[in-house]
Every structure is written in C-alpha cells, then in structure tokens.
Amino acid sequence: SEEEIREAFRVFDKDGNGYISAADLRHVMTNLGEKLTDEEVDEMIREADIDGDGQVNYEDFVQMMTA
C-alpha cells in the first residue's frame, strides 16, 4: 500500500531530508545485517535513482518498490 511504501521510505531516509543517500542506505542495510561494499551501495543507488541526481527521492523509491 502507499502508506507502507511511505513508511519504508521514512526508515531509509535517516536524516528526514526527503532523499535516501548512499549513507542512509548503507546504514539501513548494515542494521539488517547486510555487509555491503561501497561499490555495492553505490550500484543500488544508481539503479534506484531514476532522475539521475545521485540520491533516491520519494518518487524514485515508489517506482523501485512497485516495479
């Protein structure tokens, strides 16, 4: 549901600035027990970053979650 997606976005957007940065993503993945290299984190950001601004905004996140 849209509310679940919004809630998930809030979990990833640690600093609440409306964007998921590589640092935000790394933090959440580490908490989930996933040890990722910087390259892996950057690749995840690139794949999710639809508009190419280097971070994942809510619209990018929705597209990723509903793809």
Rank of each mutant, 00 (worst) to 15 (best):
Y58S: 01
D60H: 15
G54P: 03
M29N: 02
I45C: 04
A22L: 15
D53C: 08
K14A: 08
D42W: 13
Y58Q: 02
D49K: 15
H27M: 12
Y58N: 00
G52Y: 10
A23Q: 14
E59V: 06
Q55L: 13
D13A: 02
M64F: 09
D51F: 10
V56A: 03
G54R: 04
A8H: 06
R26G: 03
R6K: 05
T37N: 05
N17A: 06
G16F: 04
T30A: 14
M44E: 01
S21T: 09
D13H: 01
F9M: 04
D60S: 15
F61R: 00
V56P: 01
T30N: 11
V62G: 01
A23T: 10
R46P: 02
R6Q: 02
V56Q: 00
D53L: 11
F12V: 03
V56I: 13
L36R: 09
S1L: 11
F12N: 01
L36Y: 14
V56M: 05
G16C: 07
M65W: 07
L25K: 00
D15G: 07
V28G: 03
D42K: 06
Y19T: 07
R46F: 05
N31V: 14
L25H: 00
G16N: 09
D13R: 00
L32N: 02
D15C: 07
D53M: 13
V41Y: 13
S1C: 12
E59D: 05
N31R: 14
R46I: 04
I50Q: 10
E34S: 15
A23K: 12
N17T: 13
F12T: 01
G18N: 03
E39H: 11
E3I: 09
Q55Y: 14
V41D: 01
I50D: 04
L36Q: 03
E2G: 07
I20F: 01
V28A: 10
I20V: 06
E47M: 15
G33V: 09
M65K: 02
A48R: 11
E47S: 15
R10Q: 05
A8K: 09
D13V: 02
R26H: 06
V41A: 04
Q63P: 03
L25P: 00
D24E: 09
L32C: 05
E7M: 11
T37F: 04
I5S: 01
F9G: 00
K14I: 11
V62D: 00
H27Q: 13
T66L: 14
F61C: 03
G52I: 10
V62R: 04
I20W: 00
D60A: 15
T30C: 09
I50Y: 08
G18D: 01
G16E: 04
E47L: 15
Q63M: 10
E39R: 12
D49C: 12
V41G: 01
G33S: 12
E4R: 13
V11Y: 07
I20E: 00
I45G: 01
Q63R: 15
V41E: 02
Y19S: 04
M65T: 02
V41I: 12
V56F: 08
R6H: 03
N57T: 07
K35I: 11
V28C: 02
E59R: 06
D38I: 12
N57F: 14
E47H: 15
A67K: 15
R46W: 05
S1V: 08
E47F: 15
E39M: 09
D38R: 11
E43G: 11
F61M: 07
E2D: 07
E39S: 09
D49H: 14
L32M: 08
E7V: 05
V56W: 03
E40D: 07
E7D: 09
E3S: 10
G52E: 12
E2F: 14
A8F: 07
R10C: 03
S21A: 09
R26L: 06
R10P: 00
R46N: 07
Q63W: 09
E7Q: 12
E39T: 09
A48I: 12
V41S: 02
I5P: 00
G16Q: 07
R46Q: 07
I5Y: 09
K35W: 13
T37R: 06
A48P: 01
Y58A: 02
S1F: 11
D51I: 11
L25C: 04
